[in-house]
Amino acid sequence: MTPRSPSSAPERTRATATAPTAPPKVPPVLSVRDVRVGDRAGHREVVHGVSFELTPGKAVGVVGESGSGKTLTCRAVLGILPRHFEITGGSVEIAGTDTATLTPSRWTELRGATISAVFQDPASYLNPSVRVGAQVAEVLRVKTGLKRRQARHRAVELLRAVRLRDPALVYGQYPHELSGGMLQRVLIATAVAAGPRVLIADEATTALDVTVQAEILDLLDELREESGLALVVVSHDLAVVAQVCDEVLVMRQGEVVEQGPVHQVLHHPRHPYTRLLVAEHEQYGLDRFLDPTEASS
Rank of each mutant, 00 (worst) to 15 (best):
T2Y: 12
R12H: 12
A15D: 11
K25T: 15
V26T: 10
V26D: 02
P27G: 03
L30N: 03
V37M: 04
G38V: 10
G42V: 12
V46M: 09
V47L: 10
H48L: 05
V50Y: 05
V50S: 08
P56K: 01
P56E: 03
A59P: 05
G61L: 00
V62Y: 02
G69S: 10
K70V: 02
T71M: 04
V77I: 14
G79H: 00
G90K: 00
G90R: 00
G96S: 09
G96M: 08
R106M: 09
T108S: 10
T108N: 10
S116Q: 06
V118T: 05
D121S: 12
V130L: 14
E138K: 09
E138T: 03
L140V: 12
T144C: 15
L159V: 08
R160F: 03
R160W: 11
R165S: 10
D166Y: 14
P167T: 13
P167A: 12
E177D: 07
A191T: 03
A191S: 11
V192S: 05
P196Y: 06
V198R: 01
V212A: 06
V212H: 06
I216N: 06
L217C: 04
R224A: 00
S227D: 06
L229F: 11
V233N: 09
V233A: 06
S235C: 09
L249N: 06
M251S: 08
Q253G: 11
Q253M: 13
V257N: 11
V262C: 00
V265G: 00
V265T: 00
V278Y: 00
H281Q: 07
Q283S: 08
F289N: 01
L290S: 05
T293L: 07
S297Q: 07
